[in-house]
Design a protein around this nucleic acid. Structure first.
Lengths: 337, 337
DNA sequence: ACGAGAATCCAAAACGTTTTGGAAAAAATA
DNA sequence: TATTTTTTCCAAAACGTTTTGGATTCTCGT
C-alpha cells in the first residue's frame, strides 16, 4: 500500500542502505546522490514506517502521561494546560504523547501503566500528583522505564523532578491574609496520601506560626481538589460557632467551591470572607470575584519536564535534574476584605 | 533485555508459533499445552512487543486526537471530558490514544496530522470542531485513514459522525428566554468558519422568528469560544444604546466571560440580565450564578465515537454511522430574571 | 605508474512478532 | 488392517527499517 524504502531504492537503482543513510544525513553518501534520494523520496511521498523503525531501533519515540481523574472527567483546568505543554514539547523533539485517564491508586491505573510499560509502548513516562508512597516510582524503577516527576514522593529521591515550592507558597498566602487582618484562617486540603497535601498543609502551618497564630484544628478540612470538595468543606466551615474569616483552598478548584458555598449563604467574598486558591489557572481570573491565588508556571513546567524526560531516554546528561520553583502570589479581589 | 516469545518457546521446548497461537487462543493447540504456555508466559513476564506486533500486523492499535487549542492552552473543560471519554473507551478496546494540541488551520496542525498519517503511527483519527470547509476530511480520505467526526462539515457527507443538534438546541434556548419575557436577545457566536457557528446561529435565528422577533444584527457578536471572547463581546453589547436583556453564548466559556463583564458593570445576572451558554460542562454548575445551558453528553459521545472509529478500522459494519442527538435544556439561575 | 587512503556504495543481519502451508502423530472410519 | 480425518505442532516467510562490516572505485602523492 504505502511506499516503502525499497520502492525508492528500486526507482533509483540504489540499495536500501544508501537510501536510508542518505535520508539520515550520513556523510558516507555522495552529495549528489543524497539530493537525488531526497527529491525522489519526497516526490514519491516516502515516510519511514514508524512500526518498522521502532522495532529496529528498540524505541517508540512516545512518552506517556496518565491524567489523574475522578470518575468520568478530569475537571481541573490545570491538566489542560499541562497536557498542552507536554504535547507541544514532545512534538518539537519528534516524540509523541500517549494519554489516558485513571483514578489514582485504582486497579485501572495499575493496568494502564502495566500495559504501557510491559509492551514497551512508551519510552518514558511523566508522573504528576505524586503520592507520599507512590507505587509508580518503585514500579517504573524496577522496570527500567525512564520517568520524571511533577512534585515528588515522601522520601528523598534520586530521580528527576520539578517541584513548585508550595510550602513556601502557602506560608506566603497566610502571611498575606494576616496582613489583611485575618486571624481565623481555614484550610481545605487534599487527601492525605498526596505529597502536595503534606507540603501545602505544612506551609499553612508555617504561615500561622510565623504570625503567632495557634493552629485551630477545627479550621482544617479535607477536600478532594474538586469544586464539590471545596463546596462541601466550606459549608461545614460556615456552620462553626466561630466560622473563619478567611479560607484557603488547596487548589483553585477547591477555592471555587468555597466561592459557591459562600454565595449560597449570602456571604460576600472579598468583604465578609477572604478566599484564596493555588495554581493560577486561567479560571481564577474569571471567578466572581477573581481569585487570589499562587501561580505556578504550568505550561512551562510541562515543557521542561518533557525535555528532561527525553534527555533521560536518550541517556544524555541531565543538569540539573531536580528543580524547585517558587510560586508567585497573585492578589485579586477575593481577599480584598 | 525484555523477555521475548523465543525465550518462552525455548523454555518449553516448543516453537514460537505454538506459543504465539496458544496465547492468542487458537484452537489448533492442545488444551494442556495452552495452559502450560499461559502459565510460564505469565511466570516469565512475557508480553508481546508492540513494535514487532505492529510491524507484522500493519496496524498500531492507536487512535489520534488533536485538541483545538488557542495559544498555549486549551481552556475549554469540554475537552477534558471529551478526552477522558476517548481514553477510557480506547483502552477498553485495547487501543491507545495519542494526543496533541494545535490551533485550527495553522501550519502546526497540518504537520501534526501529516506526521501521524504518513508514518502510519495511528490507525484512525477523531475529528472535532469541524470547519465548514475542512481540509482534514479531504486529507484523511485521500490517505485512506479511517476517521469519525464530532459534528460535520458544510456539505452532506458519507463519513461517520455524531452531531448534537445545536440548531434545535439554540432555538429551544431562545424560546425559553422569550417565555421569560425577553425580546432583546443577543448572541455571541464563534468564528464563522466553524460549522457549529453556522448551526447555532441558525438555531438562534429560528428561535427568534418562531417568536416573531426580527433579527437585530447589532445584537449579534462574534466571539472565539473563550472566556476572553465572551467578555469583550459583552462589553461592547453593554455599550449599546439599547442593550440586550438576555445574552446567549455559543458555549459555556463565552457565557462565563459575559458573567464577568456583567459583574464588572454592576449588572446582576439573573435579575437585570439573563445569560445562557451551551455545553453543560461541570463549570456551568459552579458559576455565579449557575448557568442556564444546553447539555450535551460529552463523555458518552466521546466513547461512542471511539467505538465507531474502531469498528471502522477493523472493517466491521457500522450501523448507524451517522448519529444526531438532542441537547437537553438545563435551566438555572442565570436566566431567572 | 603504483600504492595508500578517501569516498561511495551495498549485502546481509537483526529487531520480535504473526501467519501460511504443511508435516507428523493420533484417532476415526472403512 | 488400510485409509481417511482430526489433532497438534512447526519451519519459514514476511512486515520495513537501521546498522554492521566490508567491497569497490576514485583521488592523490610519490
Amino acid at each position: 500500500m504505502a511506499v516503502t524504502i525499497r520502492d525508492v531504492a528500486k526507482k533509483l537503482n540504489l540499495s536500501i542502505t544508501t537510501v536510508s543513510r542518505a535520508l539520515d544525513d550520513y556523510d558516507d553518501v555522495a552529495h549528489t546522490t543524497r539530493e537525488r534520494v531526497r527529491s525522489t523520496a519526497r516526490k514519491m511521498g516516502y515516510v519511514p514506517s514508524r512500526a518498522a523503525r521502532n522495532l529496529r531501533r528498540q524505541r517508540a519515540d512516545i512518552i506517556g502521561y496518565v491524567i489523574p481523574a475522578s470518575g468520568t472527567r478530569f475537571t481541573d483546568p490545570f491538566f489542560s494546560e499541562f497536557i498542552a505543554g507536554l504535547g507541544d514539547q514532545a512534538v518539537s523533539h519528534n516524540f509523541d504523547l500517549l494519554i489516558s485517564t485513571a483514578t489514582p491508586d485504582t486497579e485501572k491505573e495499575k493496568q494502564l501503566y502495566a500495559r504501557w510499560v510491559s509492551s514497551r509502548l512508551v519510552d518514558g513516562i511523566i508522573l504528576s500528583r505524586l503520592r507520599l508512597e507512590d507505587w509508580r516510582v518503585e514500579y517504573l524503577q524496577r522496570n527500567h522505564v525512564p520517568f520524571v516527576m511533577h512534585g515528588r514522593t515522601q522520601s528523598k529521591t534520586k530521580f528527576p523532578f520539578i517541584e513548585i515550592d508550595s510550602r513556601a507558597g502557602f506560608a506566603l498566602l497566610v502571611k498575606h491574609l494576616v496582613e489583611r487582618g485575618h486571624r481565623r484562617i481555614a484550610y481545605i486540603g487534599a487527601p492525605e496520601k498526596f505529597t502536595l497535601q503534606r507540603d501545602r498543609y505544612a506551609g499553612y502551618q508555617n504561615g500561622l506560626s510565623a504570625a503567632n497564630i495557634p493552629l485551630d484544628k477545627t479550621l482544617v478540612c479535607q477536600g478532594d481538589l474538586t469544586r464539590a470538595g471545596g463546596y462541601h468543606a466550606a459549608q461545614s466551615l460556615f456552620q462553626l460557632r466561630k466560622p473563619p474569616t478567611a479560607i484557603i483552598g488547596a487548589n483553585d478548584l477547591t477555592a471555587e467551591g468555597v466561592l459557591r458555598a459562600a454565595r449560597e449563604r449570602g456571604i460576600v467574598v472579598g468583604r465578609d470572607l477572604a478566599v484564596a486558591g493555588y495554581d493560577g489557572t486561567e479560571v481564577s481570573e474569571h471567578t466572581q470575584p477573581p481569585l487570589t491565588t499562587l501561580r505556578q508556571p504550568v505550561y512551562e513546567t510541562a515543557r521542561k519536564l518533557v525535555t528532561m524526560l527525553i534527555a533521560l531516554i536518550q541517556n544524555e546528561p541531565l543538569e540539573p535534574s531536580q528543580i524547585i520553583l517558587q510560586p508567585e502570589l497573585i492578589i485579586r479581589e477575593s481577599t480584598a476584605g
